[in-house]
């Protein structure tokens, strides 16, 4: 490709049709706290794994709500389940149970 000194940014279009409603229902059933997140980012700021790699729970929740499962999984599979995010979350979300179930429901093995 010829480098013209500028490029196109990748599309940031959100297609809600990509959401797998079945899985989304499943996750809200096992951990209703999923709906409580206000995307404050406290979890990501305090994250142990986030010191070394791109783990970001706030982002994961956002991505799942936008139907971007693959991207979401890539941001959570490095989680060490340490529980710091549970302690800092201002919404009192049981983040560990949420993470366990995200991996269970969304990550294909």
């Amino acid at each position: 490709m010829i480098d013209f000194g500028y490029s196109l940014t990748s599309s940031s279009r959100i297609s809600l049709d990509n959401i797998n409603q079945k899985k989304l229902k499943k996750i809200t059933a096992v951990e209703p706290d999923f709906l409580k997140c206000m995307a404050c980012g406290s979890c990501a700021a305090s994250c142990s794994a986030g010191n070394f790699t791109k783990v970001n729970l706030r982002m994961v929740i956002l991505l799942l709500n936008r139907g971007m499962e693959k991207e979401a999984i890539a941001l959570i599979e490095g989680c060490m389940l340490c529980g710091k995010c549970t302690l800092v979350c201002p919404r009192g979300i049981n983040t560990r149970n949420l993470i366990i179930n995200i991996l269970k429901i969304y990550k294909e093995v």
Binding site: E77, G78, C79, M80, L103, K104, K107, V109
Partner: peptide
């Protein structure tokens, strides 16, 4: 529980 879905 499902195990080893993590990636370290």
């Amino acid at each position: 529980h499902v195990r080893s879905r993590t990636d370290y």
